[in-house]
Design a protein around this nucleic acid. Structure first.
Ligand code: DCP
Ligand code: MG
Length: 769
DNA sequence: GCGGATCAC
DNA sequence: TATGGTGATCCGC
């Protein structure tokens, strides 16, 4: 009899070890896959993966049928279309930008190793028995990587040390590296805590005219060429902040008398013990460590090396970087010499072509396992194959995806970084031990809604569409959504909607139980809470009672008795809503939210994310292996940004580059009923400039409903808001309720329009460029 | 507009 | 024993 093996037909391609990551070259894939297979087979998870695999194979089959049905005339047409597109693309290829992608090495793992040096020479991973966030490079040799369950990782590598994640630390490091990024490109685009795109084009222009002094930075002396070794007695602050100013302002440092060619040699010959420098750090009072000075050239390579070294000096962590004329290439390059390396593709068509020729498509951001397999069935595995098969691709994929593929094969990508975009959704989800009892399911749902409502308030957002996500114990995922008539941030209204979506699912499995392992709630169609504007309604409220609310619930269905979905009640009533006092939490907010890099040059899919898992339930393994942080937090968090700025290349107030760029409404033909109203509304308009692409006008009366142009609906809505009945209802409602804040009008016959159109807006910034 | 799928990190 | 969380986009209805 034959034993099932990973090589047999039962191997799940999408489950096999993924060696696409840095540090995973040339490992024993066969053995690893066999272990993964043995550990997984028979599980619910595995069975679901098998199901997905079959689905994918079916899709491939259909694709093959479609392809084989193509006549030669159609193929010729595809070829012609492809070639025309390629000509057009080539014509607008832009090699004038210098884009850099910076990515920290084994980020979470590196932070944990930094803070517990005993981990440095051991295979380790961050996460728990259920799931790993990432692993260090030693562990990667065993096939241990991100998104792998810890218990399987331990089978691959029995000596693996698991460390639970510390998100506060990762966020703090992220802030530090972003401060450095900002000095090279104030408009840098963070993709996650540990990586960002930068456009160095402008910096390089500046850099070429800068003095040598601006390009000298401190390096701690390393005993070997691995990581910086810290001594308990020595200062661990950022030397380029606490000491560099003193050094480069030294009288004795007469670098102007030295030629650029000999300057580095001269710097090496200096003995700083002879100079008048502080012996102790002025921030932490510890002894300052020995250092050397390094001069960086005006080239990109040196600019990026300088940036990476400054990151390492500041965080004791290494970064890798890619330099190229566009984001797509820069991303690939940053992986090329990982860890602690960099790689450049020069702005040269031939060099790009040469690079793309043998590049596996899987290396391109946006092409994942599934697309790889799909393309594989068309004999495409390298980027150059995309060109060879362009006629097929034209027919087999959508126009957008086809264009994406053609850009890839030409080595084209985004040449500009998008500004901060407003978020489009906010969600929370949790995996748990099986729940099938409806009452418990509703309770879980309520918890999630409470969590979501809190997050919405912290972000000062309201939303209109509530989505419920469920994953059964067999890993089948479903989402169900409902769009409300009003924007809301009210936990109860959210729960009401989610509850009913859940009920439908519970009821749909007749005669049996809905058995879940995960539930999630998402809010989308978001608009900002217009909290900072004085609404006429709030004046009524204030005159009616003393308490005024800032971040309380903003939805208020005060007048329309809608028989709407969100108002229906449930027999399955649960008492979870009584203990819902909003708890104030001090939250660490990242000032840069991720940005999407979407351009016509970018993947038709995926954009950006902050790392999840923050709330993931992870258990300690080897607690005893861990030791307390040796390095005082203060030293790491210490930014000293002013000091660093004064002597640096750029001025940067860009720290808080959530850049409050004012937008002007280019065509504001308003239709307000009187001049006074117009004034109110203009104020409202100014307060709603946070949206780059969309401008909403809040109702100047209730301050809650948002309107897009044209303003007919606003006018109509305001009539209702100002009606005596409405005002009466507000006052009445205030008597009845002691915890409502602003008011939301619901107009049932003319629904407040969901903003659809994008208005052309002009950023004031752009006038000052 | 909705739901499933894919992708990134 | 055990296979995450958050956000975004695209495709086909
Ligand atoms: N599926 C994933 C992938 C990543 N991360 C987290 C942990 C990583 O440390 C961090 C950065 O992701 P990277 O893809 O950049 O991976 P690393 O930085 O860990 O390794 P490297 O960049 O050296 O390949 O995001 C995660 O939680 N889940
Ligand atoms: Mg990384």
């Amino acid at each position: 009899m034959s034993k099932l093996t990973a090589q047999g037909s039962s191997l799940i391609s999408t489950m096999a070890i993924n060696d696409n990551k840095a540090g995973m070259e040339g490992l024993n894939k066969e053995k690893i896959n066999q272990i993964i297979f043995e550990a997984s087979k028979g599980s619910k998870f595995f069975e679901n993966e098998q199901k997905k695999e079959e689905q994918l194979n079916q899709k491939i089959l259909e694709q093959q049928i479609l392809i084989s049905s193509l006549s030669s005339a159609m193929l010729f047409h595809g070829l012609k279309e492809a070639d025309e597109l390629i000509e057009k693309l080539k014509a607008c290829q832009d090699l004038s930008h210098t884009i850099v992608h910076v990515d920290m090495d084994a980020f979470y793992a590196a932070v944990e190793m930094r803070d517990d040096p005993r981990l440095k020479d051991k295979p380790m991973a961050v996460g728990g028995m259920s799931m790993l966030s990432t692993s260090n490079y030693i562990a990667r040799k065993y096939g241990v990587r991100a998104a792998m369950p810890g218990f399987i990782a331990l089978k691959l590598c029995p000596n693996l040390v698991l460390v639970e994640p510390n998100f506060t630390k990762y966020t703090a490091v992220s802030q530090e590296i972003r401060e450095i990024f900002a000095q090279y490109d104030p408009n840098f685009s963070p993709m996650s805590l540990d990586e960002a795109y930068l456009d160095l084009t402008e910096h390089l222009i500046y850099r070429r005219g800068s003095s040598n002094l601006c390009r000298i930075f401190l390096l701690r002396l390393k005993t070997d060429n691995s990581s910086i070794v810290v001594n308990d007695l020595e200062c661990t602050c950022n030397l380029n902040a606490v000491l560099r100013p003193s050094v480069i302002n030294l009288e004795e440092l007469k670098i102007n008398s030295v030629s650029s060619e000999n300057l580095q040699e001269y710097l090496n010959s200096l003995d700083f013990s002879n100079f008048n420098l502080p012996k102790d750090c002025q921030v932490c009072n510890k002894k300052l460590p020995p250092f050397s000075l390094k001069l960086y050239d005006t080239t990109v390579e040196d600019a990026v090396l300088e940036m990476r070294n400054r990151i390492e000096q500041r965080t004791f962590l290494t970064a890798s970087a890619g330099i190229a004329p566009n984001t797509m290439l820069a991303k690939v390059c940053s992986d090329r010499n990982k860890p602690n390396g960099q790689f450049q593709i020069h702005p040269d068509v031939q060099e790009i072509e040469e690079f793309m020729k043998n590049l596996p498509i899987r290396k391109i951001s946006g092409i994942g396992k599934v697309t790889e397999k799909l393309l594989g069935s068309l004999n495409i595995s390298l980027c150059s194959d995309l060109y060879k098969q362009r006629a097929l691709l034209y027919h087999a994929f959508s126009s957008l995806t086809f264009q994406y593929f053609m850009k890839i094969t030409l080595g084209m990508g985004s040449t500009s970084l998008e500004k901060d975009e407003e978020r489009k959704s906010l969600s929370t989800e949790r995996t748990f031990a099986e729940i099938s009892d409806p009452a418990q399911l509703y309770e879980k749902c309520a918890e999630l809604c409470q969590h979501l409502a809190k997050d919405l308030n912290e972000e000062q957002l309201m939303g209109k569409t509530v989505s419920l996500k469920i994953k059964t114990i067999s890993f089948e995922i479903k989402t169900r959504s409902h769009t409300l008539q009003c924007y809301t941030n009210d936990e109860k209204i959210i729960f009401n909607a989610a509850k009913q979506l859940l009920k439908v699912e519970i009821d749909s499995v007749k005669q049996s139980l809905l058995r879940l392992r995960l539930m999630g709630v998402r809010m989308s169609k978001l608009v900002p809470q217009a909290s900072n504007q004085v609404s006429i309604v709030s004046l009524f409220h204030q005159s009616n009672r003393l308490t005024s609310t800032a971040s309380r619930t903003n939805t208020h269905n005060f007048n329309i008795q809608k028989t709407d979905f969100d108002e229906k009640d449930f027999s399955t009533s649960i008492n979870i809503l009584e203990a819902n006092d909003p708890v104030l939490e001090s939250t660490m907010t990242t000032r840069h939210s991720q940005k999407s890099l979407f351009q016509k040059t970018q993947s038709p899919q995926k954009k950006s994310i902050e790392s999840g898992m923050k709330n993931s339930i992870m258990k300690f393994v080897s607690k005893s292996e861990r030791c307390s942080d040796k390095i005082a937090n203060n030293c790491y968090v210490e930014s000293n940004i002013k000091v660093e700025n004064n002597n640096n290349l750029r001025n940067l107030d860009c720290e808080n580059s959530s850049s409050t760029s004012l937008k002007l409404q280019s065509n504001s033909k308003s239709n307000f009923s009187n001049a006074a109203m117009q004034n109110v509304s203009q104020a409202t308009l100014i307060s709603s400039v946070e949206s780059k692409q969309k401008t909403f006008i809040s109702c100047p009366v209730c301050g809650q409903q948002k309107f897009d142009w044209p303003l007919d609906q606003l006018n109509q809505h305001m009539d209702l808001c100002l009606s005596r009945k409405t005002i009466k209802t507000i006052l009445q409602d205030d008597k009845n309720s002691n915890k409502r804040g602003a008011v939301q009008v619901e107009n049932d016959d003319s629904l407040p329009s969901v903003p659809k159109r994008k208005k052309t807006q002009i950023a004031v910034d752009s006038y000052f460029k």
